[in-house]
């Protein structure tokens, strides 16, 4: 029995210790946002956060994850309200087929949590591991920039 904390909720799982986190999320917890792409940790479609770091969930066994905080794209929606990044991706029409998008958003989320105001080069370097076969990279970048300005605006109204 392994306990996983996903999006703030604890789940007891009766799964093999070498089960990839992605399988546990999708098959056991019905969190289907993270996608199976290559299964080899090379495309980024399965990206989720572990303690705030973007990781490739298809190659991370659940035995690695006791007492760690896992966040999936479902966790960015609070009380039915979309988070800043998912909203920005929708507003910029960043998805074409959409398969890579959950991973893209989660990798961007990791960056914005650490650095709320990254410049364009920092965003590009950070997003490099995630692939989009449709080629909507420019819209993805615009969406991340939009999220940066939105967050700044929100922070501005708070202070």
């Amino acid at each position: 029995m392994i306990t996983l904390e996903v999006n703030g909720e604890k789940h007891e799982l009766n799964a093999e210790s070498d089960t990839p986190l992605l399988y546990a999320l999708r098959d056991e917890l019905a969190l289907n946002g993270a996608k199976f792409g290559c299964g080899l940790g090379q495309c980024g479609a399965c990206t989720v956060l572990i303690d705030g770091n973007a990781v490739l969930s298809c190659v991370i066994p659940i035995s690695m994850l006791a007492n760690r905080k896992i966040t999936t794209i479902e966790g960015l929606t609070k009380g039915g309200k979309l988070g800043v990044l998912p909203s920005a991706f929708i507003e910029e029409n960043a998805a074409q087929c959409g398969y890579c998008i959950a991973g893209m958003i989660m990798r961007a989320e990791a960056l914005l949590r650490r650095n709320p105001n990254p410049d364009d080069n920092t965003i590009r370097d950070h997003m490099e591991p995630n692939l989009c076969r449709c080629g909507t990279h420019m819209r993805i970048l615009k969406a991340i920039h939009r999220a940066v300005s939105t967050s700044a605006a929100i922070a501005g109204t708070r202070s």
């Binding site: 090379q42 490739l56 190659v59 991370i60 690695m64 994850l65 591991p129």
Partner: peptide, 14 residues
């Protein structure tokens, strides 16, 4: 060839 990084998930003890 690519190998994915594990630093974001693996602890020092692991």
């Amino acid at each position: 060839p690519i190998m994915p990084p594990f630093s974001g998930a693996i602890s020092n003890e692991q």
